[in-house]
Amino acid sequence: MSVQDRADLPAMKTNPKFIFFTDFDGTITLQDSNDYMTDNIGMGKPRRLELTRDILEDKVNFRDAFQEEMNSVTKPYNECIQYLVDNIKLDPHFAEFFQWSLENNIPVVVLSSGMEPIIKALLKALIGPDAEKMQVVGNFVGPRPGKSIDEEGGWTIVFKHPESGFGHDKSATLRAYSSLPADSRPTMFYAGDGVSDLSAARETDLLFAKKGHDLITYCAKENVPFTVFEDWSSILANCKEIVAGKSTVQDAIQKGRKDYESGAAGVVVPTTK
């Protein structure tokens, strides 16, 4: 069986030289849909920020913190989806990037710690029919005992990898591609912004980390190479240069390190004594 025919590697179907993997919430979109629900119709922002700090300080894993956040959202599931469709906005440059990727045989794969039905509904609303050309890999939704998901307190998140502290271990999908033979392995890009992207941060050739967000702090702390993006216009410009052979992944990583050290990455650089 050829690489292109492997059912577990759908992004290889067209034998691409590059694949772009990306987080969804707060990366493709301007707001994080799960944070938006938690802050506005769930536990509220102060408690959510406490949980985020606890994750970064290794006091709790992402899966358990996210479960607590989603448990606090009790609106019927269909109402949650409509609430998000009405309020979540797309990064203004993502549609241009996605069109370029389609024209250049660069599959886009969404890897999310959110829930697939929400993501697909939002992508369809924000991008239109072409959204179906994007593979979405995420968690799922299920009913609570004796309830329907479309009633008050009726739904719960169902994790793709319940045994993992991430709930959805994004690195598992990335490793399936990165372990391909060298003569068929594509160059792998990944874009993300927060704690749900920690498992993916080490598993790609070039990580785009969003300016001013938690992922940069983690990568700098753990010596994970990255470059900085502010919106998808900078991702598009970088990818065009690399695909055209005008720059390299290492060039982008070096710039990311300089941006971090100079403060241009939008996070506080720890002082050394």
Rank of each mutant, 00 (worst) to 15 (best):
Q4R: 14
N238Q: 10
T227D: 02
A264P: 04
T173A: 04
H161K: 09
G44N: 04
E203D: 15
P186V: 01
A182L: 14
E103M: 10
E222S: 09
K75P: 00
A11D: 07
D259R: 11
L207P: 00
S33C: 13
S184N: 08
D197G: 00
L215A: 00
G212C: 11
S179V: 06
N78F: 06
G256F: 00
T248E: 14
S171K: 04
F18E: 04
H161I: 06
F97C: 15
S262R: 10
N87P: 08
P162F: 03
K59R: 15
V228F: 07
L180G: 09
E132V: 12
W232V: 05
R257Q: 13
F20K: 04
L49V: 07
V85Y: 00
S262Q: 12
F21K: 00
V195D: 10
I127E: 13
F208T: 00
L30Q: 13
S101N: 15
E163R: 04
W100Q: 01
K211Q: 13
F229G: 11
F66V: 01
G146A: 08
D25I: 02
D259T: 06
T272H: 11
H168V: 04
I253Y: 08
E230A: 13
A200T: 04
D259K: 12
S184P: 00
D251M: 12
K120V: 12
A200H: 02
A182C: 06
M1S: 14
F98E: 12
I106L: 12
C80A: 10
F159D: 06
D214Q: 14
G266R: 02
I88A: 10
V3E: 09
D91I: 01
V267G: 01
I88D: 07
S179L: 12
D54H: 10
L84G: 01
F140Q: 04
E69N: 05
F166C: 10
G266D: 09
L111H: 01
E222Y: 08
T52H: 04
R53W: 08
D150Y: 07
T74N: 11
K124M: 12
A265H: 09
H93N: 15
D58K: 11
L180Y: 10
I118S: 04
D231I: 12
